[in-house]
Design a protein around this nucleic acid. Structure first.
Lengths: 224, 224
DNA sequence: ACTTGGCAAGAGCAGTGCTCTCTTTTGTGG
DNA sequence: CCACAAAAGAGAGCACTGCTCTTGCCAAGT
């Protein structure tokens, strides 16, 4: 094995270790992650961490990308069988389950953006994994005639949606893209509401309530 | 006027001034508000601010309460005329408009909670103003027969919803309470998605898209 | 006139992100 | 095998943060 690859592998392992410890800190301290504390946990000087991440924001960005990938993978692993409606609901619950298991990482990607933090280009592609899956399901359902297309969307919004449809769900009617995005937004809102405490002292049957909302979205989308 | 009330008035003015400057800082620096920077802007020592707010969290709490009150007031000032459906949509747009005008305050109350920050009791009552209004509209619509009740919700969730209905929207069928809460959650999700950049490079016709989503929720609720 | 209570200021502590310099390690080409 | 260059780590230091404690001051009330 060449030297470069040995170095690279050790470096990658160290990078992963830093991220792992940072994730652990995230779970207790939340988004205001202390690079020095992470370094202490690793038994190294804080300045050494800067060999691996140019800044605290860079470390956060790495965690954000990982989180997007993780929730995207969780959604992809959810059931691919059953009716299109069932697949949609399956994805919804997979996302919620992942969020409940990793609440701080959810907050990192779907909570308020860190001030001054500008999402780098690297984050936009992993961020789209879930919505693309929902889009694909709805598109397939549309092609199979298993979803009602409904009224087209007029005006400039309609044109925009047509562009989005072409890029992200080729073959799907624009109005279906809009309803899919609406469902995705509602999904994010429902998970955030649950995680951020807006249901406290009001709803305890969270899974059922979430399920009810997503069934509502399935109906709005128009699954048959 | 007695001395005590003079003192109290001056103190209240100072408190308001601190909050005003803090709000200004919030708009530029985001949620990681620097008490020292606020104090500098006010030309006073940072320790002096502690005469008015016991901690940075206390100052944030005060801003949070004000924000809840402001968005609640904005919703209450929105149109009280027209059909129940129109009133619902009017509230939705009022909330969105307020959020667009005060994005950082929106992030403060509906973004990820500040780590280690536990919402005090004082915040729960102002936090309910908007959803209570939506609940009242839907309840009135139900009593007027202007909304379809739809299928009742079974199981423990149904019981919980009945309790919520009794407390917050007396006379409304529990399933309508559920759908109202779902609409409110979707509303929050839609505003957050727009403010937190999830629509960037995808949808520019934000108002139209939001309107489309809220009309969908109006249909889900069952307004006639 | 005098006391007292609220207010402000300043120093100080422990922590932070980040940079700079210096030293040690380490993989490798001669 | 060994000298060398590149990579990695360590430590001090800067400017900043939240918060506390002590000191001084000034005005209001007896």
């Amino acid at each position: 094995m060449t030297a470069a690859s040995i170095r690279a592998r050790v470096r990658a392992e160290m990078t992963d270790e830093i991220k792992a410890v940072a994730r652990r800190h995230l779970a207790t301290d939340g988004a205001n992650l202390s690079l020095r504390a992470v370094a202490r946990d690793l038994g190294m000087a804080s300045s050494a961490v800067y060999r691996y991440f140019a800044s605290r924001d860079d470390l956060l960005t790495a965690l954000i990308i990982d989180a997007y990938d993780a929730v995207g993978a969780a959604a992809e692993e959810s059931a691919r069988t059953g009716s299109y409606r069932d697949r949609f609901l399956s994805i919804c619950h997979a996302v919620r389950d992942w969020a409940l298991a990793n609440p701080h990482e959810w907050a990192l990607i779907y909570g308020s953006p860190v001030p001054g933090y500008q999402a780098p280009r690297d984050t936009v592609e992993p961020a789209t994994r879930v919505i693309l899956q929902i889009g694909a399901i709805v598109r397939d359902a549309a092609l199979a005639g298993d979803v009602e297309a409904g009224e087209p969307v007029a005006g400039r919004l309609g044109e925009e949606l047509a562009v989005v449809a072409e890029h992200a769900a080729q073959g799907a009617p624009p109005q279906l893209v809009a309803r899919s995005m609406g469902a995705w937004i509602h999904l994010c809102g429902a998970v955030s509401a649950e995680l951020f405490g807006q249901l406290n002292n009001t709803i305890d049957e969270r899974r059922e309530f979430f399920d009810l909302q997503m069934r509502g979205e399935a109906a709005t989308i128009g699954f048959r």
